Simulated assay, not measured.
Amino acid sequence: MVEITHRFVESTSGLRMHVAEAGEGPLVLLLHGFPECWYSWRHQLTALAEAGYHAVAPDQRGYARTGGPSEIDQYSILHLIGDAVGLVDALGEGPAVVAGHDWGAPVAWGTAQLRPDLVRAVIGLSVPHRPRSSRPPIAGFRQKAGDGFYKLYFQQPDVPERELDRDRADTFRRTLYAVSGDAPPNPMIVPEGGGFLDFCPSPDVLPDWLTEDDIAAYVTEYQDSGFTGPLNWYRNLDRNWELTAAWHRAPITPPALFVVGDRDPVVAGRRSAVDSMGDFVVNLRETVWLPGCGHWTQQERPKEVNEAMIGFLRGLS
């Protein structure tokens, strides 16, 4: 059986990053989302290694064993893309295939957009590429979803981390279940006077793809870092919009694959955002829809995700 090993790598971005890795061969960089860490790619690390690739899953800036700076403005999209580029450079194995899920998807899409010379191909999971909007995103979220939208709740200082850090096992249990394909549809709206976890029900029984050992693993990985770093990604949404003006509606040119669950609330009611991706991801080879799958694609449906990723990778040559 392939072994997953761990080490720290000094990214040329200046961040000391913890990585989990397996296998030898062409580099596939796996970028996790919120609230996750390298562990969300546990099934892909071994599958990609067995297929002949060097799979590397870092804890991204602010997360788990990597940690990060305290200043909010150090979590902009340019810092996050810089970490990915710096890790590829430090590993000395570029150009790389860059895959990202949830928040990792915009980082992967952005890396392919800004540094196509270092990106052999890009794989997005759950979050489609969206071209830069004509106005800052916070105002748009407020108009479309109201002040209760969870991304607006996360803008508050200290309040979200106090809630999420209170009982981390409960946080992961609720969050991972709430937007999965096993849970009822979720509007992701914080009730007035409530918190993020108030719209995340606690399951009576965990779904088959999630175990108590998995939850314990996330709790262990977060024991030294907590949630402030991850939440700071959300606190840069308008700053990211300002910083990326030079790439407004710029195309993404490397070969691309997109994988998404048809019960993912990110795309619920927004199928057009997926169908129109080819307008800007100009070499989109395939979009794979996973019936009955929610937001945690590579954890909920590891077999199908592995097959889609490896098939796409083999087709690159």
Results as ranks from 00 to 15, higher is better:
V179H: 02
K151L: 14
A256I: 04
P116L: 05
P106V: 09
P265D: 10
I123N: 13
R270P: 02
A183P: 06
G94L: 08
G193W: 12
L206S: 12
L237E: 00
P291C: 05
G148P: 03
W209H: 04
D89W: 05
P128A: 12
H129G: 14
G25R: 05
I189P: 04
R65I: 10
D264A: 05
L91K: 08
Y177P: 12
V219F: 01
R263A: 00
I81H: 06
D198I: 06
S180R: 10
S317V: 11
A139K: 12
A22C: 03
G193A: 05
H54D: 02
P251W: 03
E307L: 08
Y39Q: 07
W247E: 06
W241I: 07
G195W: 07
Q113A: 02
L176H: 08
S11E: 01
W247R: 07
D170M: 04
E300H: 11
R285Q: 04
G269D: 02
T211S: 08
G25A: 10
G94M: 03
V159W: 02
D158P: 11
L257N: 09
R7F: 03
G194V: 06
E192Q: 14
R314A: 14
R174M: 05
W103K: 03
E50R: 09
W103F: 05
P191D: 13
D264K: 00
I252R: 06
M277R: 12
P302G: 09
G181N: 06
E36S: 11
F312P: 00
L45N: 13
F8V: 13
I138A: 06
Q298E: 11
A178Q: 13
G86T: 05
R173K: 00
L78H: 14
G52C: 13
I189M: 03
P207T: 10
M17P: 15
R270A: 15
L210P: 01
Y53V: 00
V19R: 07
T111P: 11
N186T: 04
P207E: 08
V305K: 06
I72G: 15
P95W: 12
G92F: 00
F34Q: 01
W41D: 05
D204R: 12
M17H: 14
V85Y: 03
M277T: 02
G92P: 13
S272M: 15
C37F: 15
D208G: 14
P95Y: 08
T228K: 15
T111K: 10
F8I: 12
F280D: 15
E50Y: 00
I77Q: 05
R142D: 04
W209S: 09
N283R: 10
D167W: 08
G140Y: 06
P26A: 08
A217K: 06
S11L: 10
P191F: 11
P106A: 04
G226A: 07
N186Q: 13
G104I: 09
W241P: 08
H32F: 00
R42D: 13
G194E: 01
I138P: 13
A99F: 04
V107T: 03
G195R: 11
D102I: 00
D224N: 11
G229F: 01
G195M: 04
P291R: 00
L27K: 11
Y177G: 08
S133K: 13
D264V: 09
L91Q: 07
G92I: 07
D73E: 14
D214C: 03
N232A: 01
V122D: 07
E161Q: 15
F8P: 10
A57V: 03
